[in-house]
């Protein structure tokens, strides 16, 4: 924090001149970039549509609410499918992520060549959204729950795997050394010294991802991969807004419920 003396008067400034200039340049550059981007978006927008957006919203809301409660009877099955997709997908994701994480963690990888391969699996799975995985799998396997389960599973590998291997890398070395010093084999060191250390965080991550997966599996039906998204797609295409409203409400409830369960379980683990 520089103190400048001009005309015998000390003035205190938080930053010196160079860093003030640098900050201003940074702000200016950010503003320019944002304005440029905004212009591109504004150019691609039809503003007469935007002008009556409030009307559109009001119309949509008035048609969607109150929802058609009786439609709920047809939603139980899709909701059940949605939960199944999320749960089975999480199981697949964790089952693949578990060994991958041990291959990817710096302290447990069997060979330095295997590590980048495992990391590649994790990065690719993470970068591709579950909806894109669903697009791909629907093209491969045809529409249905199976495509959804695998899509959710594939996306979960990266998320779960990354958090798993970070947990493995954070384990303390002392128990590992101690178990190794008893003459234990590599797998025994993993199961006795590493696994007990990471198991609680593994469980927490799994439940956390399950909760996210419930949210994700509500939309993969929009591309045909099963679950309540299929009904939403049908309702929107047929402009049956009262049904869509019912679907929105059921999604809201089920996601809140899963979030509550996941928070409870994670608190119980810790």
């Amino acid at each position: 924090m520089p103190v400048r003396i001009s005309n015998g008067v000390k003035t205190w400034q938080r930053y010196d001149r160079a860093s003030v200039l640098k900050q201003w340049a940074g702000w200016l550059a950010t503003t320019v970039v944002v304005l440029f981007c905004w212009q591109l978006i504004a150019g691609a927008t039809r503003w007469e549509f935007v002008a009556d957006a409030p009307q559109q919203l009001a119309q949509f809301l008035s048609r969607a609410f109150p929802p058609r409660w009786s439609y709920m009877n047809q939603l139980w099955r899709p909701l059940w499918d949605t939960v199944n997709i999320a749960t089975l997908g999480t199981i697949i994701g964790v089952a693949v992520a578990f060994p991958t994480a041990f291959l990817a963690a710096r302290n447990t990888t069997p060979h330095p060549i295997i590590r980048p391969l495992a990391l590649l699996i994790i990065v690719v799975s993470r970068s591709v959204n579950s909806l894109i995985w669903a697009l791909l799998l629907v093209a491969l396997l045809g529409p249905g729950i199976l495509a959804g389960v695998i899509a959710i599973g594939l996306r979960s590998i990266g998320f779960v795997g990354k958090l798993f291997y970070e947990a493995i890398e954070e384990t303390s070395i002392e128990p590992v050394e101690a178990i190794r010093a008893t003459g234990a084999s590599g797998m025994q060191v993993l199961s006795y010294a590493i696994l007990p250390q990471v198991l609680p965080s593994f469980a927490g991550v799994t439940v956390f991802r399950w909760d996210i997966n419930i949210r994700e599996s509500t939309v993969i039906g929009l591309v045909g991969a099963g679950g309540i998204g299929l009904n939403l797609d049908a309702a929107i295409n047929a402009l049956q807004w009262s049904r869509a409203g019912m679907i929105f409400i059921s999604i809201f409830v089920i996601v809140l419920l899963s979030e509550w369960i996941s928070a409870r379980v994670r608190k119980a683990i810790i």
Partner: peptide
Amino acid sequence: MIFQEYALVER
């Protein structure tokens, strides 16, 4: 071998 920080598996 006996260790400084006990080096037990705590869980």
